[in-house]
Design a protein around this nucleic acid. Structure first.
Lengths: 216, 216
DNA sequence: CGCCGTTTCTGACAAATGTCATGGCGTCAG
DNA sequence: CTGACGCCATGACATTTGTCAGAAACGGCG
């Protein structure tokens, strides 16, 4: 007469998934750690509040899955993921972000990130996605994916993007030219062609558009 | 032989604090609700993901304290707080924000908000602050407060701020003039004086500075 | 009332920026 | 090799923007 209730201790035969949590917002990190800890097949082995700290923690604890916030002090989530891919190939990485721009997803995927989700998902859903990623599969939020597809690839050449980025803080052309070691006329040409490609009237709106698409 | 453990039901003599939670990031909201629910003198009676939803929930459940995210779809936290002050005077409001700008704090305080904290605090700390606010006291994060004091008041006149805000998206002067029903020359003068007051070289850097201080 | 100062507005001029045509240079595919 | 393409630069020109001197409207104030 064996009870139908499952044995509480070794119910999942496999070892639990070891998770690293990196987010600069203590409120979220702590709350998330608590909620994920409720899942009996997940265990949070380390937390970090900055990019460098996340790297140090990953090296020390060698987690199975690293859950990284996109925007952190020191180094952003994608940068951390890039380093982790080289240093800890066995560690899967995934990005959690508040407001993801299309370009970020592309950057993340080319950095070997296997999961990309917005913070609007529930903790339950996040736990499922962590399992998916740990199993070696990929998951990207459908809405973010469709945004990325709609945005397409950047039409800008490397120099155009570089110059556009330098003009992001509103510096005058001569200043941009100095910083890029280019002739002022060249800078104006690049900015002009970049604005034309983006359908913007001037470089400032061009910068905004490019930033919105995540191309800078 | 009474057991020393406290009676689970009516341990706190006072009624629990009824809390409304409004944040567009489901992950945070759910996790927060779970953590605050662990405190036996706090109870989360409603959750909302947008500004209008927060208002509707507040009207329906009449919470003691409303914890509002600063950036939400529909209406931001300060706007919601302004409406709540008129409609539900008994409801204390507080703002939780990811990256708060100095000007936001000033706006929030003049909207009757009694608590202003960044998301870098722990859930434990947040619970304490909710109690503080419920008791009728105020609490603002020391770092945010010092930032606000350092930033000071806006040196811009009403028109200067208005025109600067219209130029925020990089629109040309003629477009701004049309939207503000002003002469293009007048717009240029306002932008020029605003840039001078802010120590900026042109209106675009001026916009960035003003946004960083929360003056627009 | 006249005087003063502030805000709001305008026009004229100078500087910065956007646009276009043009050309040299290097690289890569066919 | 040739042609296509991206990169860097120059000069001329139109447009936009920044700067300045000052005028009209308005509200105190003696």
């Amino acid at each position: 007469m064996t009870a139908p209730v499952p044995d509480p201790a070794p119910a999942p035969a496999a070892a639990p998934v070891r998770v690293l949590l990196a987010d600069d917002e203590h409120l979220i990190r702590g709350a998330l750690a608590a909620l994920l800890g409720l899942e009996d097949d997940l265990v949070v082995v380390a937390e970090a509040a900055t990019g460098p700290e996340a790297l140090a923690m990953a090296r020390a604890h060698r987690p199975d899955v690293a859950v990284l916030d996109l925007q952190m002090p020191g180094a952003d989530g994608v940068t951390v993921a890039t380093v982790l891919r080289d240093e800890l190939p066995g560690c899967r990485t995934m990005i959690v972000t508040g407001h993801g721009r299309p370009g970020h997803l592309k950057r993340a995927l080319s950095a070997g990130v296997r999961g990309f989700v917005p913070k609007t998902v529930s903790a339950q859903r996040l736990a499922e996605i962590i399992r998916t990623v740990h199993a070696g599969n990929r998951y990207v939020d459908p809405e973010l994916a469709s945004d990325a597809i709609a945005a397409g690839d950047s039409p800008l050449t490397a120099r155009e993007a570089e110059v556009l980025e330098l003009s992001a803080d509103g510096a005058p052309v001569t200043e941009i030219a100095r910083r890029a070691s280019l002739s002022p006329g060249t800078v104006r040409n690049y900015l002009s062609s970049a604005a034309a490609k983006l359908g913007a009237e001037n470089r400032h709106t061009a910068v905004r558009l490019a930033q919105a698409k995540g191309w800078v």
